[in-house]
Write a protein that binds this DNA or RNA. Structure first.
Length: 560
DNA sequence: TCTGAAGGCGCC
DNA sequence: AAAGGGCGCCTTCAGA
């Protein structure tokens, strides 16, 4: 049963819709949170339909009401609009409209971490709500989406994708609500240890950073050098007789000169301070919690993005600041070699699936005799999935193609399709954006123009090659998290979200659950079982395994 | 003085 | 060691 929520003027409407898309009731709603809670108590499998989870759900969570299942029309519209599986649908063939604008806008507005994103449901300053009120017909859009799925030859896959995408939206809102436990004191200790004490004057360098600057200036005989300026640094290096074309660390690493070591150290610490230093701490950690702004579906491949706080780039250097509450633990789990396993399963490559069965896919590839070392196996796989053409990775790739012809053929086909300007799709039916870079042979082009156009085509081919793997891995991760969420809420039997085990962090192929210590073992078992659930949801019963590395720890940096 | 591109680097 | 996919964020720097 679906319940479609919408605002009309200042009133709230709810429309009950059955599985076939027929309207079967319009219950009156006085208080949304109470309505949701009561409805779910009577019918736990109700699926709430709304235009944007990020607009509706935070205020429900503030009222201590969780939603079991939802249908996020904004995210699902973006999928159905592009998918080759719904190409012929009314929804896909319609002219661009306000739902496309909403999907495109995402929720790009920067978020003030000190305040919830939407203080009330009727905050008419919010763009998404304005659109909802003025131009979006929520019920009509929902029926169009149901129709697009029902008329598709791949309705089952799409249903699973839309359901996983929507569950992801709920999880993102819940993780932001709960926050990642963060010790500001531990963070400050890390910074103090590495950089020196926090300067009392703004703009002043911490002692250890200043000492490195002094040493760099001395070694380059350049007393006023500002080493954070690439242009200045390049000039100073040149004067000192060092031939560098850029100031990138990996290029500097090749060079032999007394300035290189302190310079690299300076760059590392400078990066730490500007990206995750004291000012980051001040703006993103409040009351012992880091609340990043996740953006589900923010990447074309279906991966999540973030729009503040940089949660998906959290450096290993500061993960020691992530501390479980007293009496609680973190259950940290990451999927081993997720993308190669996804590729093996998508291609139905029995050899590669078998290579992964023992637990370490790369060792399995070595054991098959295709390459000689684990490092080479990894390099060759990365080359296959990213489209390496040169270097060691490019040289190793052909050996992989001989050993695992089906898996390699799948990514090669995706690359060729992209080069021809065609669309490719993930396992559940998220399609790549239309290609603009089909290699065209035009006699009027100069050889240089033709070469440039071919390179654009190849570049788009590398994108589509990677798209099918990265996108399907993202689907696996969404299914994994959705299953974890379901299992955890059953485990905790109606306890409120943050009083029971709950997801607090997600990083593409890795999750962190914050759990009371006595439940940690049980949570770890459910997280492992959920990985098997995800494999079945996406690939059915083929015998592919998705092993996890799991740890129960007090601090995130102790997980590996 | 503001804005957008580019350099650089963190994560997967 | 560093070619190949996807990002976000901070800084510098050039141009309006």
């Amino acid at each position: 049963m679906y319940l479609v929520l919408a605002t009309s003027g200042r009133t709230l409407t709810a429309t009950r819709v059955d599985a076939a898309g027929a309207v079967v009731g319009e219950p009156a709603v006085e208080n949304l949170a109470a309505f949701v809670a009561q409805t779910q108590a009577a019918q736990p499998d109700t699926r709430w339909v709304w235009h944007d989870t990020a607009a509706w759900y935070p205020s429900l969570l503030e009222a201590r009401v969780r939603v079991n299942r939802c249908f996020d029309l904004r995210l699902c519209h973006a999928i159905l609009r592009n998918s080759v599986f719904t190409r012929e649908s009314t929804l896909a063939r319609a002219r661009a409209g306000s739902w496309d604008a909403l999907a495109q806008a995402g929720h790009a507005a920067p978020v003030d971490p000190l305040r919830p994103q939407h203080s009330t449901l009727f905050d008419f300053d919010d763009d998404a709500q304005k659109v909802a009120d003025g131009e979006l017909d929520v019920l009509a859009e929902f029926l169009r989406q149901l129709d697009a799925v029902a008329t598709s030859r791949e309705a089952g896959r799409l249903q699973r994708l839309l359901s996983a995408e929507s569950a992801g939206a709920l999880i993102a809102a819940e993780m932001r609500f709960a926050g990642l436990p963060w010790s500001a004191q531990a963070h400050d200790e890390i910074l103090t240890e590495m950089l020196g004490p926090r300067p009392s004057v703004d703009g002043e360098r911490p002692a250890k950073l200043q000492a490195l600057v002094d040493e760099v200036r001395l070694r380059l005989d350049s007393p006023r050098l500002a080493p954070e300026s690439p242009a200045e640094l390049l000039r100073a290096l040149s004067v000192a007789g060092i031939q560098a074309t850029t100031t990138r660390s990996w290029e500097l690493k090749q060079l032999k000169h007394p300035v290189i070591a302190p310079l690299l150290e300076f760059k590392k610490l400078q990066r730490l301070m500007t990206a995750n230093g004291w000012s980051w701490l001040d703006s993103w950690v409040v009351d012992g919690r880091f609340r990043p702004d996740y953006v589900p579906g923010g990447v074309v491949t279906g991966r999540w993005a973030t729009s503040g706080g940089g949660a998906l780039q959290l450096p290993h250097l500061i993960r020691g600041a992530v501390r479980a509450d007293p009496g609680w633990k973190f259950v940290v789990a990451d999927a081993s070699q997720l993308e190669p396993r996804i590729l093996a399963a998508m291609a139905g490559d029995r050899g590669m699936v078998a290579a992964g069965a023992s637990g370490d896919l790369y060792e399995g590839i070595v054991a098959s005799g295709a390459v000689d070392t684990r490092a080479h196996a990894k390099l060759a796989m990365l080359g296959a999935m990213y489209g390496a053409t040169s270097g060691e990775s490019g040289r190793l790739m052909p050996r992989l193609a001989r050993a695992y012809p089906q898996a390699i053929a799948l990514v090669e086909q995706a690359a060729r399709a992209g080069e021809r300007g065609e669309v490719v799709s993930t396992q559940l039916g998220r399609s790549s954006p239309p290609g603009k870079h089909a290699a065209a042979y035009d006699d009027s082009q100069s050889p240089a123009q033709r070469a440039a156009s071919q390179e654009r085509g190849r570049s788009w081919g590398r994108f589509t090659r990677n798209f099918i793997v990265q996108g399907t891995a993202a689907e696996w991760a969404l299914c994994w998290m959705a299953s974890i969420r379901n299992r955890l809420s059953q485990l905790s039997d109606n306890a409120w979200l943050t009083d029971a085990p709950h997801l607090v962090f997600f990083l593409h192929d890795e999750v962190v659950v914050h759990a009371p210590a006595e439940l940690a073992d049980s949570v770890a078992e459910h997280v492992t079982a959920a990985a098997a659930d995800a494999g079945r949801l996406i690939f059915g019963d083929i015998p592919v395994t998705f092993p996890l590395t799991t740890a129960i720890v007090d601090r995130y940096d102790h997980a590996k």
